[in-house]
Simulated scan of single mutants.
Amino acid sequence: MEFRKKIEELLNEFLDTRKDLFLIDLKFSAGDDITVILDGDSGVTLQDCLDASRAVEFNMDREEHDFSLQVMSAGLSEPLVTPRQFNKNLGRDIEVLLTDSSEIEGELSKVDDEKITLILRYRKPKEVGKGKVDVEEEKEIPYSEIKKALVAIKF
């Protein structure tokens, strides 16, 4: 069996036993350095990463094919890419870069298989008189229009 296919198969077998975890990315370098990025509905622990690593390493023969394996969790700096990741972050503020290069920041309020919905909160000038008024609106964004989405980190 081809090396990459075998790694993918072992990883999928592990993930079948852990329905709370899901694969975000699987990268192979030219020198067979493998990077696995996992996420979970309730986060990813160090033990989860160790278990995934063992599921692959213990079933591969390094004498037959030498490789290095790194298993990690998707950090805050990793973009949100799957509906499951967006769903996990409901209620949080996210920053979205759209395919037209515009940016939107808002609270993630709804997620489905085609789009996300953000609650945008901002102030705009009153139509009559001086001052500003608070505005809250919902904006639906199809996944096809999202270039990159990150959880907004506020201090």
Rank of each mutant, 00 (worst) to 15 (best):
K126S: 09
K124P: 03
N12T: 11
P83A: 08
E105I: 15
I104S: 04
Q47C: 00
D93N: 10
D112C: 00
S77E: 13
L26M: 08
A52Q: 01
P79T: 09
F86R: 01
I37W: 02
D16P: 00
E8L: 07
D39V: 00
G75P: 03
D93M: 10
K88M: 10
G75H: 08
M72R: 06
T45V: 01
N89V: 07
E103Q: 12
L90T: 07
D20S: 13
L90H: 06
I119C: 02
V96P: 01
K115F: 13
V135N: 04
E64A: 13
L118K: 01
D33H: 11
E9I: 10
K130P: 00
G40I: 12
E105K: 11
V81K: 14
E95N: 10
K139F: 04
N87M: 05
G131T: 12
E78N: 13
I37E: 08
E63L: 12
L76R: 03
A149M: 07
I146W: 09
R92V: 00
L97E: 14
Q85W: 05
R62Q: 12
R121Y: 04
V81F: 08
S77M: 12
K148A: 11
K130N: 10
L38C: 01
V56C: 06
F58Y: 14
V128S: 07
D48L: 02
F58H: 13
D100C: 04
L10P: 02
T117H: 03
L98E: 07
S68A: 14
F28P: 03
